[in-house]
Design a protein around this nucleic acid. Structure first.
Length: 153
DNA sequence: GCCAACGTTGGC
DNA sequence: GCCAACGTTGGC
């Protein structure tokens, strides 16, 4: 079982939006970066856990935890001309982009902000904190996962 | 809104 | 295959 961090802009889709879905489950669409896609398609598996990270907002940070409940499958928004995520190079026959299904597990008692994460040397090698990092889906090590959760104690 | 850092595109 | 131009991400 692996751990992940997945970013979303809360103005577009927040952890509360996920929690409000039927069965608290939704598909994670719109990933249009190859590295993020490859993580999702090749390594992410049903049963994995992920931090829901709020990005590009007033308080960037980890807002909660969700579970991957379906392995990657083609992102159908990629061939929907009406979708903001439309990619003319993707089709049902030759899907270029993929998504997984995620289920809300819980919100953290408080948001663990990016600013706070940066203050811990234990997290120095975390991908999220690397210079210029723009990946929207990235692995989190077991140690980092446990350490981050311990910050709330 | 600014802008650094990056990824992608496309001419050559 | 190179690389300039462009578009996007995301913190601040």
């Amino acid at each position: 079982m692996k751990y992940w961090l997945m970013k979303s802009e809360p103005d577009t889709y927040s952890i509360d939006d996920l929690a409000a879905q039927p069965r608290r489950t939704d598909h994670w669409d719109g990933i249009r970066n190859y590295q993020a896609r490859n993580f999702m398609r090749d390594e992410m598996k049903k049963g994995d856990l992920a931090f829901f990270y709020h990005s590009n907002c007033s308080e960037p940070g980890i807002a909660g935890i969700m579970e991957i409940v379906r392995d990657a499958y083609p992102d159908f928004t990629s061939w929907d001309p009406g979708s903001p995520y439309h990619d003319p190079k993707s089709s049902p026959d030759r899907p270029r982009w993929f998504m997984v299904d995620v289920r809300f597990k819980r919100k953290l008692k408080r948001i663990i902000t990016l600013r706070e994460l940066k203050q811990h040397p234990e997290l120095g090698s975390m991908k999220l904190l690397q210079r210029g990092n723009r990946l929207s889906i990235m692995p989190v090590s077991d140690r980092e996962w446990r350490f981050i959760l311990s910050l709330m104690d």
